[in-house]
Structure formats: C-alpha cells, structure tokens
Design a protein around this nucleic acid. Structure first.
Lengths: 222, 222
DNA sequence: GTCTATAGGGCGATAGAC
DNA sequence: GTCTATCGCCCTATAGAC
C-alpha cells in the first residue's frame, strides 16, 4: 500500500514563518504516513513508542518531538486515515434511505481489509474511557458527535422525502447504526464467520416506511 | 508463555494433591470479591497490578500467585460478575419477542450504575484483539459465541410462535443485538445524553412481524 | 528547528527467602 | 503461602548537539 508524496498544504500562516518550517511539517506527515503503514499491518499493542520509531527509522524521542505523546500519535494516525476516507461526505441526499446504512457498510468493507486499524481503533477507544486520556477522549467524543449529526440529518431528509419511516427517532437511530458498526467489527475480529454486512442490512428494516402508516406521507420511491 | 505452578481451580486431578487446597481456593475467591469492588468504583486503567494489590491489602506478587497474570485476574473478575448476572438464563420462551432485546436492556441498565465495569469490559475486549492475549481472547470468543447461540435460539422460538418476523436471519440478528449493546454503552460513556434504551428499542422494530407478509411466508425452518 | 542521548519512575513478571 | 528483591521493559521528560 503505497503513499503519495507528502505535500502538506493546510497551514496558510506558515507564509510568515522564517524558513525550514515546511520541512518540519513534511517530516511530520512522512512519519504519519509510515506509521499508518505500520499500523495497517499490526495492531496497536506490542507497538510501543520505541517499536514504532524503530520501524520508521527514527528515535522514539523524535516521534515525541512531532507528537506530544504516544496517545497523540495514535490519535493522529486515526484522524489522518479518517480524513482520507470520509464515507458520508459524498452521501447523496436523494437516496438517504440507502446511504444511512450504506455508508457504514462501505466503511466496514474497507476496514475488513486492514484488521490492524480495527484493532487500533478499538484499543484507542477503550483507552479513551479511562481517566487522564483527555486527548483521545476529546477525539472520540467529537467524532461520534459529528457522525451522529450527519447520520441523523440524513435520516431526517429521508423521512421528509418519505423514504424512511417517520416515527423513528433520528438521533437514536444514528447512535444505533454507529454502535452496531463498531460492535460488529469487534465480533468479526474474534470470529470471522460473523457476517458484518448481513447484520447491518437488518438495520434497513427499521427504516422502511410502514405502508399501513402512510397517512402522513405518500411519496415512495421503489 | 510459561505456565505458573499455581493450582488451577477446576482441575479434577487435584484430588491427588496433598492438602491445604481448600484454603487457597477460599483465599482466591476472597481476592476476587475485593477486586470486583475495586473495579466497580474505578476502571481498569490506572489499576495496575500493584494498585489493585495495595487496595486489597496484599503484595502484587500474591495476586500473581493466585492469578497467573494481570490479564487473567481481569478476565476472572469479568467472568465472576457474569456468573452473578445471567440475563438470558431466566428468559421466558413464551415471550421471546420481548426477551431478545429485553435482556440487553436489563444488562445495560445494570451496567450504567457501574461505569467501572463497562470500562473494564471495553478495555479488556480491546486488548484481547492483540497478539499474545490468548487467555482473554478465548474468554471473549466463547462469551460472544454463547450469547449469540442463546439469542438466536430465542429468536427461532419467537419465529415459530409467530411473535417474530420470519424472514430475519436469527444468527445475524443475534450478532446485531450484542454489537448494538456493546457499542451503545461505549458511546454513552463518552456522551451520557446518548439514550441506550431508546436506541436498543429500535431493534424491536426489526422483529415485529409484518402483517402484510404473513401469508406470503410459506417455508418454515426445519 | 530538528533530533540524539540519557535518566526517572512505573509496570508485569520472576526468584528465592521465610 | 506470602513476602522482598530484582529484572527488563515501557512511557515520558529534558538537556543539549547539530
């Protein structure tokens, strides 16, 4: 799995900086890219700061120069990967019913090809629940809130268009879809015969508008 | 991984052992009880072997005498707690539709009162996905398989009795219910406004038999 | 600004004294 | 059966070389 050359273009304020600032940013990105490769292959445990540094070819102190702590490095790896694959950014509002569960199915499909990331994600999420893990807790809390917001918005659109059952609480359904996706991937890691997609597909039965209740909406796309 | 000289509790061959075996078992149980109290209050991180030992009032080496490793101690804490609350053992087959989701709701209700256990569970589960975690991986794999079996059996009963929609795959639904329960508790820990029960209740919509399709269904499970 | 070298304190695990 | 002592590893912090 190769990675395109690191060309960070996000900080406009750097134009006022002296020089050789870009190099630091590039180096940081380079380390991030290599770290992603490492985690894709292995999980997160057994991957001490020293072990990661060794595989990347730098000292463990160098890693801490760019990332304040091991926790922060791991979070940034997750954040970067998420930036590359945003499954709901391209969601088509016209097909809200399919997109709600479809986005999760696509994400699960991709994750199944790199068990290391599922493991990293699960491990970091669990750790974020403990005290003194402000950085990762903030990341996950924000991430969950963001995805819940997008999903519930998508659900509301579907309800207005009549493609989604109207009496379903969008917030509750959003949380459920995320929970199911996370939980199924964990079960799948322990028992690969668990069909992630098959179980997720059941969630669509919740969304289907009940024909008997279509006194409120009557437009339905087959 | 070396095998400790410690005496396993469930080995029938131990009848040949000299004596003073019962006391060891009693002491082990005593330590387990104290450990459960400790974990109910706090999570699993920050609870090093030394910290647990100090709170219980023994040396950390004593803990390792009764439990081969930290991993094993934590698993036994979970196992013991589960032994005390088995939510599907008492399931009433006559009300299969309600019991499927109901059991999870009851478990979630109880867990919400002791966040430390949810945290311990999540942390240990995440760790079990890593290499060299044979003991906890075996525990979770067995646990998930057992609950899936019970749930799917309950679902089949409900389908035969007509209380549960017939075209739902029992195995896939069982995995989904467990996944949702686990995932929702995690989200709830990060954002208490997430309504676990409200989201779980949506799963019941999947089970509801569709009156319009009742006559379309002709094949039954053998 | 970038990175190396080094040190401190905590961890799980083990060995051997009592 | 339980303890003290100790080992090797870990994360983190920091001083200072380039």
């Amino acid at each position: 799995m190769s990675t395109p050359p690191a060309v960070p273009t996000e900080d406009p304020a750097s134009s006022r900086r002296p020089r050789s600032y870009a190099k630091g940013v590039a180096r940081r990105q380079e380390i991030l890219d290599r770290a992603i490769e490492v985690f894709a292959a292995k999980g997160s445990e057994g991957t001490s700061l020293r072990a990661i540094a060794e595989k990347i070819g730098v000292s463990h102190a160098a890693l801490l120069h760019y990332f304040g702590s091991r926790e922060e490095l791991l979070v940034e790896v997750l954040r970067e990967r998420e930036r590359r694959h945003d499954d709901y950014r391209t969601a088509d509002d016209r097909r809200a019913h399919d997109e709600v569960v479809g986005g999760m199915v696509r994400a699960a499909h991709r994750n199944v090809t790199v068990p290391g990331f599922v493991s990293l994600y699960t491990s970091l999420l669990a750790g974020s629940l403990e005290p003194d893990r402000e950085y990762s807790r903030e990341f996950f809390a924000t991430r969950f809130a963001r995805i819940r917001d997008r999903l519930s918005a998508l659900i509301r659109i579907g309800q207005e268009e009549g493609g989604i059952r109207a009496d379903v609480d969008p917030e509750a359904m959003a949380a459920l879809v995320i929970a199911a996706s996370d939980g199924l991937q964990t079960q799948w890691l322990l028992e690969p015969s668990v069909g992630i997609e098959r179980s997720l597909a059941l969630l669509e039965l919740i969304l289907e508008p009940d024909p008997a209740e279509s006194d409120k909406n009557s437009s339905r796309t087959a």
